[in-house]
Design a protein around this nucleic acid. Structure first.
Length: 437
DNA sequence: GATATCCTCA
């Protein structure tokens, strides 16, 4: 039995299976070990096969498989499994609720939650936290009220969900009254709670309070620093973020990939191009952190804003992963700000390939053409939308374009001929047209 | 079975 466990820990299911088959007497424990081993290596077919061959009927075993389906985001199989279960407990129900929450189907999660024959604190936390994470703070607080009416006392995990909901809603007052009511001295020593608090204060506009909590915290860990650095970044306080990054290392906390997203975006928001370039290099060479797409997006944006468009484009071409719309979008936006038509065309071409239906890209490109006075190209970009039947997802965009055109025509140095005027007429509102006649 | 940080603004 312990030998089988060893193979399973090492991920060698083949060897474990051979020993398992050779066992003359198999007890419940060894069946469970085998089945959860298969679930861990995501071989759900094998785990179900064993479950069916198993002479025992135990909720725990079914729950292991159920959690496997939920983890794999295969809600249909999970529901099937759930319906077939000879007996269910609170954990089985909660896992289903959690499965729906994680796949973003809050309605289905709530239906399950309401149907539960009995609920415990974990089920409540799952549902409440689910609303919080999926941007439904109102539902979060309503359910929290219901919980209080039932006389259930919230614990740390639940409070974290509530704090997160309040930070999304921007309602510091509600959050603070909850904190006063439930956060006693014991909760203030919990780093999860503290980190959520720092994040909440920062997101709700009170960096002072965030800092106050941060400074009074002993034994700060990586996430604590990470949250504070990201907060500085969002406030445009680049130097403060960087100095905190150095403090962190003095405290022997090792940086990870997420920390660097904070540091790089702090450089970005603070306009610190030189520092950003240096940290990006250091991250890879000194700290051995592999950049993800988010790091690249940050750098492209940083270079783009600073007007180093060529450098931004070069960086994209060196990316080890396929650049997504986020990265190309950052470049296109930067080209718009710095009036670089050539690179804008490159970025736009890539965006058209990846998301041909997004009208925003065509509009941005035609705006760039417009500000360069290239009316024929403007017209072409617009007809691309017509011919490709691109959905217009923002009606106001054409009006913005109209304003760009209007400004251009009004400028004294716009040498437009009749042909140009013809191209732009479409963009103008009736009022604007009248002013040219 | 539930628990905190993470690119961008047109």
């Amino acid at each position: 039995m312990s030998v089988i466990g060893g193979y399973i820990k090492a991920g060698d299911m083949m060897e474990a299976r051979v020993l398992f088959e050779a066992m003359p007497m198999k007890d419940l424990a060894v069946w469970n070990v085998m089945i959860s081993g298969y679930v861990d290596v995501e071989d759900l077919v094998a785990s179900v096969y064993l479950l069916e061959a198993m002479p025992f009927h135990e909720v725990g075993t079914w729950n292991v498989i159920l959690s496997g389906f939920c983890k794999a985001r295969d809600l249909e199989s999970a529901k099937n499994c759930f319906n077939k279960m000879p007996c269910k407990n609170v954990a089985s129900w909660t896992m289903m609720v959690d499965g729906y929450v994680k796949s973003g189907d809050l309605n289905e999660a709530r239906l399950m939650f309401d149907e539960m024959p009995e609920k415990n604190l974990i089920s409540w936390t799952t549902m409440i936290g689910g609303y919080a994470k999926n941007g439904q703070p109102r539902c979060t607080l309503e359910l929290f009220e219901q919980l209080k009416e039932q006389g259930i006392k919230p614990d740390v995990t639940l409070i974290i969900g509530i704090i997160s909901a309040c930070s999304h809603l921007g309602i510091l007052d509600v959050a603070e009254s909850i904190i006063n009511e439930y956060i006693g001295p014991s909760l203030y020593s919990n780093l999860h709670v503290i980190t959520s608090l720092i994040d909440m204060y920062a997101k709700c506009g009170s960096i002072e309070k965030a800092l106050k909590v941060f400074h009074t915290t002993l034994g700060k860990d990586l996430l604590c620093y990470s949250t504070m650095i990201a907060a500085f970044a969002n406030y445009g306080l680049g130097h403060e973020a960087i100095s905190l990054f150095h403090d962190m290392q003095r405290e022997n906390v090792k940086p990870d990939g997420v920390i660097f997203i904070g540091v790089l975006s702090a450089c970005n928001h603070g306009g610190l191009v030189e520092e950003g370039r240096r940290f990006f290099k250091q991250m890879i060479e000194k700290y051995d952190v592999q950049p993800t797409e988010k790091h690249y997006a940050c750098m492209v944006d940083l270079f783009g804003r600073a007007g180093c468009l060529q450098e931004a484009h070069n960086l994209i071409t060196t990316m080890p992963m396929a650049p997504s719309t986020v990265v190309w979008g950052a470049l296109l936006a930067a080209c718009s700000v710095h009036h670089n038509v050539e690179l804008a065309e490159v970025a736009a071409a890539e965006l058209f390939k990846i998301e041909p239906d997004n009208s925003g890209n065509y509009i941005l490109l035609s705006n760039i053409y417009a500000s360069a006075g290239r009316w024929h190209d403007v017209s072409n970009a617009r007809s691309m939308i017509r011919s490709q039947r691109v959905r217009k997802n923002r009606g106001s965009s054409w009006i913005e374009l109209g304003a760009v055109v209007h400004e251009f025509v009004m400028a004294d140095d716009s040498h437009m001929d009749a042909d140009d005027i013809y191209c732009i007429l479409d963009f103008l509102t009736e009022d604007m047209k009248l002013s040219y006649i």
